[in-house]
């Protein structure tokens, strides 16, 4: 079972990296959400999997009688989910503000904080001429 989940984590990471390589900020955010879910799944898997044995101690006993599931990864994941929820919510608002204020979600066109110098403009024009027409981000 661990193997299957590991493969799933791999696929999710691949997909998220593909998304994050795009110039579109929204795609990047989707990639990030996918990546953080993959991370949670990775923690879950690395805590080893057990079938139907909740980490509960029966009444009267002081220690668990049978083997139980590892509760710590679940606690870690819960914390991580809460944190990533907050961070991603902020990132989403920020992306929206960026779209409102800067009028674009193409990260290549966000040049207000780092304006392109004359030299950089020339260099990028030369590069574009060399590498042929490039596809525009939707």
């Amino acid at each position: 079972m661990e193997v299957v989940l590991s493969v799933v984590v791999g696929i999710m990471v691949t997909a998220s990296i593909y998304l994050m390589l795009g110039r579109n900020l929204v795609k990047f955010l989707f990639g990030l959400i996918l990546l953080s879910n993959a991370a949670n799944l990775a923690i879950f898997t690395s805590g080893r999997l057990t079938w139907g044995s909740p980490p509960l101690i029966p009444e009267g006993a002081l220690v668990p009688i049978t083997d139980i599931a590892n509760a710590l990864p679940q606690a870690l994941i819960l914390t991580a989910i809460v944190i990533s929820f907050g961070l991603l919510a902020f990132a989403l608002v920020l992306a929206y503000c960026a779209y409102q204020e800067l009028g674009t979600v193409d990260t290549d066109e966000m040049r207000i904080a780092e304006p392109e110098t004359e030299f950089a403009k020339k260099a990028s024009r030369a590069w574009r001429a060399l590498s042929g027409p490039r596809d525009r981000a939707p």
């Binding site: 994050m20 953080s36 902020f90």
Partner: peptide, 22 residues
């Protein structure tokens, strides 16, 4: 300019966060 800078700051730092977590 702040929002522009923040987009890059937030994006890269979130990636680092996830890597740290993994």
């Amino acid at each position: 300019a702040q929002i522009d800078g923040a987009v890059k700051y937030v994006a890269l730092n979130l990636v680092s966060t996830v890597l740290f977590l993994v």
